[in-house]
Design a protein around this nucleic acid. Sequence first.
DNA 1: TGTTAATATTGAACACGTTCAGAAATATCT
DNA 2: AGATATTTCTGAACGTGTTCAATATTAACA
Lengths: 224, 224
Amino acid sequence: MFKSGATNKGQATKAQLLEISLRLFRQRGFETATMREIAAAADMSLGAFYYYYPSKDSIILDYYRQVQDQHAARVAERWAEAADLRARLGLLIHTKLDILRDSRELMGTLLRYTGSPDHPLSFLGESTRGIREESISMFRDALSSERLPDDMIRILPLLLWAMQMGLLLYFLYDKSKAQARTTKLTDGALDLTVRMISVARLPIFRPVRKSLSGMLLEAGLIEG
Amino acid sequence: MFKSGATNKGQATKAQLLEISLRLFRQRGFETATMREIAAAADMSLGAFYYYYPSKDSIILDYYRQVQDQHAARVAERWAEAADLRARLGLLIHTKLDILRDSRELMGTLLRYTGSPDHPLSFLGESTRGIREESISMFRDALSSERLPDDMIRILPLLLWAMQMGLLLYFLYDKSKAQARTTKLTDGALDLTVRMISVARLPIFRPVRKSLSGMLLEAGLIEG
DNA sequence: TGTTAATATTGAACACGTTCAGAAATATCT
DNA sequence: AGATATTTCTGAACGTGTTCAATATTAACA
């Protein structure tokens, strides 16, 4: 399947099917929208659809890829405007929130197999490693112009990514208008974060940092 | 349904059905085990089973309840042995790991609807609030004998619970023998935690603590 | 061009979780 | 005991995601 170049006929229809599917998911809800509906909307038989996507859930994986690409693009656009660390972190997270705002249900669906490590669609599993690492790398980039001890450079991207995950979870459950509470929490968390970073950078905290980085290294959560 | 006393006939069979279901889930896997198999193992018709549990997933909710009760009981048993904060936190988390060790798949299933805030089985939703608060309260108890500033007393139980969640997630994905890596990570994290608690307690950190507790309060994550 | 290989599509079937009108069994009341 | 209400159970059906052998369509090659 799709052995020849990237601008394949097959890949084009697959991209089209992704659009149609996402539109239906947003209109009718992920559960409510049936595969038969999707196939009908795409003017093909039910079985034909399965030639492109192995399962209903697997469509969400491409959505995830789309979100990550969009995130990287939109952040790059405005990267120059962000003068300091605080601004860059704000740009990163607020942009992500904006992208996900109208698709929170889909984002939630993405978490469905987080508890199943071996499932091909596990959010923390192997199949999503690439996207995850791109996302973590964006935080690495945000830190790159700071003068920080090596251990912090290794630890912080993961920690910031984890914080973003926490905020996204809060975002998902946020019933306030336009998720205003999440916006506020994000800004508060980031203010605190940059303050804590400049404190943690002090030489007094070197032993603590060493313990932490040793621990995370041994756990395989960061690399040497 | 079940209008009379607690020692009802119906509740007894429901408890039996829970046992049978969990046994089958562990033996054959949650997905693989079918409702028809479960009903057959319980010597009743498929439809009859649905008189007791509204869905396959909902069985897991009772499992969650069972885990929490077992956790509270086992921790209470050995509470006296734990002399200081470090020991109490270790007892809490290691006991939980022990309880879940042979049912990691079931535990993962419990996370299935974490991304669906309004789903009746959402792990962070309303229907599980009671269990969740019991779990957080155990950390409050572990801290009760410490002399800590008020704000830390309010913040720490939530933070420790969140850390436990993180460790459980790591545990779920841990492929090392007997999940030894999780054990190690847990001990390292707890050592660091108690160190950080005694640092954060110092008056110099009062402003930071105030920001944090104000933020969490406004976010509705802790109570005034 | 004619033949072969790769790609794309079909439609019917399957297994699964779930629903439900109704029947049976059991408890409650007069 | 008989009548009535409540609890428990049945079996057949439904809609869903998914599979697959068979077929049509398109590309590659001689």
